Computed example of a mutant assay.
Amino acid sequence: MKRKLLFGVLLLIVAAAGLTVLFQKQIGERLFAQGAASRIDNAGLDLGDGLHLILCGTGSPLPNPDRAGPCNVVVADDQAFVVDIGEGGARNLNLIGFDIASLDGLLLTHFHSDHIDGMGPLALFYWTQGSATAPLPLIGPQGVERVADGFNAAYALDHGYRVAHHGTDIVPETGGGLRAMPFAIGEQPVVVLERGGLRITAFRVDHDPVRPSVGYRFDYKGRSIVISGDAARSPMLDRAAKGADILVHDALQPGLVGAMTSALEADGQANTAKITRDILDYHASPEDAARSAQVAGVGRLVLSHLVPPIPNAFFYPAFIGDAATYFEGEITVGEDGMVFSLMPDTSAIKLGKRL
């Protein structure tokens, strides 16, 4: 009896497999249509009033299939700003369900390639998804005009093709590209925007020889987020982060980078090994970031722009190193898709994941 039952089950499996192969095209079309409708219907990201941080990229120039280049979004009620846009950042924003057309601007901390090489797709989505009639505002320190001009020139032919193909109702000719909004930065912090209860302050950081190089602080309804950009530890950053709820700090683990350098040298890749040695002096270690967080009295430290690439969470303790001995608060190793929500009239920080 058991053998007959088993034989019957096997026949059903074989028959089902045969039918699947026979009707694979039709099944695939139906499943795709259902999946597309479901994903589009559930794509919206409703955060509510408060101050929110979305990590749309936590990687570095070193290849990592699980992390886009540096990318952050700060949302304050109906205002939203991207801070840096590395490769893959715009893709992640779409996957997260963020409405790129709703952006108020893009802020750059500095002009290293890995912080700007996602600008083209971001500006394109801003234009096409919302039929924007003006370019995406690009806010940054002196020199940001050259960056905007270069990207606009590179995408000029593409701009013409899209207008000709889709029409000006969908892609207005006056939209597309980037509009530079530079600010001067010296030793003192500078308020670069203040409206609707949101204040954005830029402050200089130590990323020599990269100058200008800044971080940003966002204050809204009693909550605050600080993004370091790329920075070695410095008193400037410690002061700017004073009392912040969240400090997002770049982090390089020297011990792990040293192991990578040794492997590169053993493989004869002298050029790349030289680069991995050079980067040690202008990024903070997790321990340095923890010291800054403690001195500034921040609520939570979020490590991002992770160097070297971390294969998975098993390696987080090795990456964090001794950072927990220097900071009494919570340390989070940032991952693409993390969403931190800071609501008014509370000190709580809610963490979610969208990827």
Rank of each mutant, 00 (worst) to 15 (best):
L12P: 08
V14E: 07
V14G: 06
Q26W: 10
R30P: 04
A33V: 10
Q34T: 14
G35N: 15
A36P: 07
A37T: 12
N42P: 09
A43Y: 11
A43T: 15
L45N: 12
D46K: 15
D46I: 09
P61W: 05
L62K: 05
D66Q: 10
D66H: 06
A68C: 03
G69P: 01
N72C: 05
V75S: 04
D78S: 04
V83D: 01
L95P: 05
I96C: 11
F98E: 14
F98S: 13
A101G: 10
S102V: 07
L103S: 02
L106D: 03
T109A: 00
S113N: 12
D114C: 04
I116S: 07
M119E: 14
L124N: 12
G140V: 14
Q142S: 14
G150N: 04
N152H: 08
N152V: 10
A156F: 08
G160W: 06
A164Q: 05
H166G: 00
P172G: 02
T174V: 03
G176L: 05
M181W: 05
P182N: 01
A184W: 03
I185K: 06
G186H: 02
E187S: 08
V192F: 00
V192C: 00
L198Q: 00
R199H: 01
F203S: 00
R204H: 07
S213Q: 03
G215F: 10
Y220G: 06
Y220F: 13
R223F: 10
S224V: 14
I225T: 12
G229F: 14
A231D: 09
A241W: 05
K242P: 06
G243I: 10
G243N: 09
A244H: 11
D245R: 09
H249Q: 09
A251S: 12
A251C: 07
P254M: 12
V257T: 14
G258L: 06
A259S: 14
A259Y: 09
M260S: 11
M260H: 12
M260A: 13
T261R: 15
S262W: 11
A263E: 11
A266P: 02
Q269S: 00
N271T: 01
T272L: 04
K274I: 05
I275C: 01
T276W: 03
R277V: 02
Y282E: 11
S285D: 14
A290I: 10
V298P: 06
V298Y: 02
G299P: 10
V302M: 03
S304N: 01
V307S: 02
P308W: 02
P309D: 01
N312R: 14
F314M: 11
A324S: 13
E330V: 09
T332R: 11
E335D: 07
E335Q: 03
V339L: 15
V339M: 13
L342Q: 05
P344E: 02
T346W: 02
L351F: 01
